[in-house]
Amino acid sequence: MTRDFQEMSATADAGRKAAMALLAQATADEMTRFWSVWTDKPEVETLRGPETGLVMVRGRIGGSGAPFNLGEATVTRATVRLGSGAVGHAYALGRQGEKVRLAAVFDALWQDDAKRDVVEKTVLAPIAQRLDEELRTKRAETAATKVDFFTMVRGED
């Protein structure tokens, strides 16, 4: 593998990682809605799942020390193949099978150079916008509860 190719694949990985992170955090409604308006729906073959299992969530002692097992969480995963041959994967917390299957479809579509822009604009951007909005609201609500300390000054004159 040449250096250039390694770098390119690292960038592509980062892009796909970010895309899959957004798909994992989509709501079931969002996935259904975006799929229902997707024109030119490809043929979809489900290779695996959707199936629900567990992951053991790890923390670190003291916050950044040695890892320890905190407890489990439900996760659902699916793998699909499109008519084009592209294979898509999805994993997300929870037990929403259809949402995860559609997330795998969008992951496969995202890998197609001709479809990536449309996936970014019509699927990923609205999810990212909602997540940003939620984070902004949460920060503003939390900031309103920030304690502004003041010191009582004893009058000397």
Binding site: L54, V55, M56, G59, S64, A73, V75, K138, T142
Partner: peptide, 22 residues
């Protein structure tokens, strides 16, 4: 939980990067 398969162990969570609510 005993009825479900285990997919794996996660990476340790980053509590320093928490989206803080309190």
């Amino acid at each position: 939980r005993t009825t479900l398969p285990r997919f794996g162990y996660t990476l340790p969570v980053e509590t320093a990067a928490m989206a803080i609510e309190r």
